[in-house]
Design a protein around this nucleic acid. Sequence first.
DNA 1: GCAAAAGTGTTTACTATACACCCATGA
DNA 2: TCATGGGTGTATAGTAAACACTTTTGC
Lengths: 247, 247
Amino acid sequence: MERNVDLGGFLENKQNFIPHLSIDSVIFGFHQDQLKVLLLRVHDSGVWSLSGGFVRMEEGIDPAALRILRERTGLENVYLEQYHTFGHEDRSKKNTLADILDFGHTEEFRNSWLNKRFVSIGYYALVDFSKVNPTPDSFSDIAEWFDLKDLPPMIFDHREMIYKALESLRANLDTKLVGFNLLPETFTMPELQSLYETILGYPLRRNNFQRKMLSMDILERIEKLYTGAANKAPYLYKFKAPNVEAV
Amino acid sequence: MERNVDLGGFLENKQNFIPHLSIDSVIFGFHQDQLKVLLLRVHDSGVWSLSGGFVRMEEGIDPAALRILRERTGLENVYLEQYHTFGHEDRSKKNTLADILDFGHTEEFRNSWLNKRFVSIGYYALVDFSKVNPTPDSFSDIAEWFDLKDLPPMIFDHREMIYKALESLRANLDTKLVGFNLLPETFTMPELQSLYETILGYPLRRNNFQRKMLSMDILERIEKLYTGAANKAPYLYKFKAPNVEAV
DNA sequence: GCAAAAGTGTTTACTATACACCCATGA
DNA sequence: TCATGGGTGTATAGTAAACACTTTTGC
């Protein structure tokens, strides 16, 4: 099949990227009581990938990850954390770009630096779902949120990267109080609890959860939120500490 | 100063290593109630470095780390854990090899792939001090244990890499039960406690520590150890689970 | 008033800590 | 028999879990 996909100068490595090294970010969001990841669909294919990119020769890896994240979400200040580096020798040998993008200049692509073995530094980002403006990159045509429990076919080892990121997120949930980065500025206690339950994967006691959260003295109670439902209106809360930790 | 240091083919990258990517391992040992790290002295200099190396083009990063570790310690089965990847753009611009090794073929070195910017994947290893056979590499002339509280001048950002590794070790001490990898097959309870205290940096209660360890049901009590001291002989213990977790 | 969901109070269980005591060993 | 360090028992404090109850809201 003849395709004419513009890879925006990536094939020639015009921007002088470090070869064999990539960055992939698992972008987590929370919407309708579900944990979501932002994925990119590889051009004209049924295969999806994480938000990824490369590191410029004079660029630090953290700034590179932030740059990539900005390009995919439009967000400037996001919680970003490096969690693992993936470097199995065969990690980019299944569901490869070459397999998926069997476009015109195949020969050029197969010989390009893009088609080589890559070691990828994994980051995960926690963002406010409602603020994200999903934007595809040169390798993709759509950016879309997926439920973590309903992931599409994915390129390389990106599925495993997501699961490992979730593990890290779980481990950091209590110690680093990272969950708040997935919520808007204000939220109710039941919303916060639902977030925790979704991430951890098991239910929590309503009363004990509330007590625990309030006892940490990190929440500021604002006014009540009248939803129109026939029950007591929940309070709105605001996270006291700044919502973003720089990497 | 004219020096003739043999870098064993590294200058020409004969072994086809991935450029700009290195692996550095913080090798922890425990000896005389002190936490130690194994360091290598850069040829004819007062500057020391971690055990490091490069990743071959067809080699996974974990096998590469194990290979390097084997070469520096002679050990086959070691507890090894990837903890962080260091990729600041300036990380290899201070205390560089070029500064330290101002040897004969300077021009060749300055232009070589070795003198470029490197992203380094950090691992830490936990080994039985008494079993290690410290062996320098092509860049160093001695391999020696250093007390963590008395580190010498170090190349690049290796000092920060050690501190970050210690943080990870502390965080994993209780959850992953990694401490046992720093001890011989058999050990006494006071020895184990001393290890924990040294890693954590604060004292623990003798009786409660023992109870906690025994309650986890991971220790097997062997016979008593008669040291010749004028006090009750401590029991020897053995760790039930296998001492090594593969990476 | 009633159902639904939010919020608060109280009891219980568990674990971590502190304190006290006993045991074995060699001089 | 005494000092020394190892081992065990018990009380207390602090926290986490479970249970029960009250409050607010719209119909």
